[in-house]
Nucleic acid binder design. Structure first.
Lengths: 198, 198, 198, 198
DNA sequence: GATGAATGAGATTTCATTCAT
DNA sequence: GATGAATGAAATCTCATTCAT
């Protein structure tokens, strides 16, 4: 369609790229990457498939671009964290900020969480692993007790999982987020108290 | 002609059915369900695609059968748990046994963890949700502090995530499993001590 | 369609592969390889595109298989020639036999002649080059006069070109072939007489 | 705005048109016409596809224009030849001059030689055939012996083929060209001596 | 218990072309 | 003289599935 007859869809000019990203992420998160066809994305946007290829060279490039755009704040946070001393205070601060960054990029992370097999095959898999390794190196002290190492790893994981861990649970989302954050901070703090957990 | 009529003794002879399941699970876990084609499975087994259709009516039936077969122990555990009083001791026992059941069915859970988007679309999604809900209802006391609720949920989650959470970490797998178990038991125990967590 | 209603097209069973090759070669020769789509081939055979892919893994495999099948006699001739002494008599004999082999595989060679750019990109390009090099090494004596070397190369070339060189010329095809053969034999013979040609 | 109205001075300024032709011919010769996309041409020139359409109405027009520009000397040669008496001397002279014209337009002819299937479908096919017919009518005497007719045709063909016939052969290109020319002149001369070749 | 042959639907991708700016 | 955005058509290829044997 898209015939200029009524002027209803002319105001989107120059933002097609953005709109593709938005719709794509929505569908990828909902149905998975493989199950989402470019036809579907194009139809929702009322453009042709070829239009998608004008903006992105391949299907993979769409998800890669989403990843790059949405994880920039985290990348910056990790870069920052690497330059700070790895004290408990730093870690707590990172947990807090990371929690917020996760919320901001929630749909992307929901997608990644739920499509790990796919992510692994795509190029973003490696970028993500690098990022996670950076985070782990800040949090996990390799000389610490193994249980405490797990605590720290679990803290990060709880944050990641938190978003959708609580979907079934009733209650105010903001409160749930706060609860998740508290558990994560707790885990990090306990780990720092020195393995007294056992 | 050895056609199964009652379902009790598939393994009897002509173990092709079993071999299909094995290879399928391996590939599904590795590459994802959508990315794994029946052609690939057939080729690995050195049979034709049509042979798969002799044993399973559809592709989905393969994964459904795997799920049914491999989660039976958990189903039984949850059934058992539902009939026990929901005391701390019961929960700790379930955590321990569940941890073992997870290890036994690790590849399936790795698959499910990494292909949630796919799982959701398939029939096993619902069966799994039912199972998880059963588990949650045993663990999570809806009247407890929200933070403690998160602790309990996080305990189960830590178990599930544990398997691959620690893949990067060096160390004896048995010890790592023990560490994961300890963190999970800890979380459940803390939750029971009454929200004073920190 | 192919619906079994009348029984008119059931007698082709087991020869689909051959029929694909036949139609493909016809169309490749007529329109070129790139311009011939699998849709076109399938439609002519009244099967689906997917049926082609049952018999050949890729479009390229169709042409590769044609090449392999149709040039086998030549390959054998060259193998034979390599084991003979490279005398004038041998060369004349090869020219004669090669001429016949070319006639037998005429459509393929017409295709190759007219689609060299394509052939170069495909795997058959190299096989063909190897074959031609074998032939040249039999015919062309590297120590001979350059003009005589060209004569020998031109002999082979005249054979190859002969088929369609004379399409415009009127006259009995058999006679034309004989004339081409004579010119080729002539060139080879002159070359052997020792460059006195001019 | 410098738009060509008469066609005489394309090279004047804003030489994009020329550059398009150059790159296009290079790619057409290398990969074939069908395999060469306008995107590829545009990318090499660092302009957009749309820019090509400013200079040429269609893809075909690019090759048509190349043909027209590069074969003009031959056209003139043939026109000249038609007005001369068809003596041996004339023919030898034409062979010599034609040989030079071929060298000047080598890439185009390499392209045409190697993409005959494509050329046949395009408009240039007919123009070329007309030109070749003109040449043949000068060279081939329809009343002569068939073998001599083939000799004359083969002479022209040897010239055409010569360019790439000798690519594999080592040696000074200039010498190779001379050798090709000698064989061609030879063939024409023999034909005129009256079938004595046999 | 399995194969050989085929299908229908649909996927990703590419291309020549257009047109307003 | 050229670009940015888009399109319609088509291409190659893959997949789950069917069915007669």
């Amino acid at each position: 369609m898209g015939v200029t007859m009524d002027g209803t869809k002319q105001q989107r000019r120059g933002n097609t790229r953005q709109r593709i990203q938005d719709v794509a992420l929505e569908l990828f998160a909902e149905q998975g990457y493989e199950k989402t066809s470019l036809r579907e994305i194009a139809e929702r946007l009322d453009v042709t498939k070829a239009a998608l290829y004008y903006h992105f060279k391949t299907k993979e490039e769409i998800i890669v671009s989403l990843f790059a755009d949405l994880t920039k704040p985290m990348e910056e946070l990790i870069d920052w964290g690497e330059q700070q001393p790895h004290t408990l205070a730093t870690k707590q601060e990172i947990v807090r900020r990371y929690s917020q960054a996760l919320v901001d990029a929630a749909p992307l992370f929901r997608f990644m969480q739920e499509n790990q097999a796919t992510v692994r095959e795509l190029r973003i898999g490696d970028s993500f692993k690098d990022r996670m390794r950076g985070l782990r190196d800040i949090f996990v002290d390799p000389d610490a007790d193994l249980v405490d190492q797990v605590r720290c790893a679990s803290a990060i994981f709880t944050l990641h999982a938190g978003m959708f861990l609580l979907q079934d649970l009733e209650g105010d989302p903001e409160k749930k987020r706060a609860a998740v954050l508290e558990v994560a901070v707790d885990l990090v703090t306990q780990a720092h108290k020195g393995g007294a957990g056992t």
